[in-house]
Design a protein around this nucleic acid. Sequence first.
DNA 1: AGTGGCATGTAAGGCGTTACATGATTTC
DNA 2: GAAATCATGTAACGCCTTACATGCCACT
Lengths: 183, 183
Amino acid sequence: MLKFALLGALNYQPMSGYDLKQFTDRSISNFWHAELSQIYLTLKSIEKEGLIESNTVPQSGRPDRRVYNITPAGRQALHEWLREPFTSIDQYKDTLLLKLFYSASLDRETILAQLRIQRGLHQKLVDTFQSETVDLISQTTERAPHLHKDALLWDATRRFGEQTELVYLRWLDETIQLVEDNF
Amino acid sequence: MLKFALLGALNYQPMSGYDLKQFTDRSISNFWHAELSQIYLTLKSIEKEGLIESNTVPQSGRPDRRVYNITPAGRQALHEWLREPFTSIDQYKDTLLLKLFYSASLDRETILAQLRIQRGLHQKLVDTFQSETVDLISQTTERAPHLHKDALLWDATRRFGEQTELVYLRWLDETIQLVEDNF
DNA sequence: AGTGGCATGTAAGGCGTTACATGATTTC
DNA sequence: GAAATCATGTAACGCCTTACATGCCACT
């Protein structure tokens, strides 16, 4: 699936593996993160499939950049994947919930400590979605007005992140209260 | 991590791999799912670590059951893991959001079709959390009143599922509206 | 002098899914 | 008669993470 995340990015403009890591971190990492090493491996494999092509751009005092372009076959593969109905729900894993589920024998303070750590982390995420991510999207529309429709969908995924994190926070507060009252 | 999901379950009572699949499907699958084959492999590896022990229970007309018991070392490993502070957030992947992010060039109806399929799937999940899962937890507390505290935490994880799915539904409705108005 | 950014990649190991293999019993 | 349930497991494959390896440049 990372395959299509990268094809989608290269459909906007040619990029190197390093560029793609930064692009994904700033845009889709909320619902599709990837390590650099995995990006390099995936690029290699989709180049072999003929969906992208690379050319080496020499640089002075820095390693050469290997810049990838999407091919017509790549554009087609991307569009086919986008149109293909997705009829399931991705499974998600949450270590905090797993620990909490089995935590009944722990003392009150240990449970509360776990919950409060998470509260701080999720608060930071909410802040990011409400400021940095908003700015990032509006910057793009200013520079590239033809991406107006794209920006609407990008903002939809941003709002998803904001809303799910707000619910996570609210749930943490409720659960902290529950533990304070019952443990 | 599946290791601890299984240890936590076996800390309640001895179970076979097959039993554990059913247990996890009914309780923690919302935040930690696992296939049977992976459960069998994990059981084998944690038995080698000495955290669980198995004994074979013969059956007539059925394959023998291999029933696992948690050992004192297993109880200790579980408790150490539970107490260990969890200081990060699990990354989560969502194919629908990935597709939507790159869908600006698709026609309105194709995007709406994707969103409506998901609406149906998430509606079903909400229903499950609001009826079946509630029943399951209250049945356990009736049969085993000493698990009263456990049930409070189980219900907290159930409410997490219910609330996140409700937000997902609300977001889908908003996004369907967005696409209807702009594409 | 040290940290962080730029830039590419390999290697090892862990985790997870899907398919395969077997076979009786129970339910529709 | 077919499908689901009970019950265990192996094999192949893919994906992902972490660590390793290299080396220059800019900034503090």
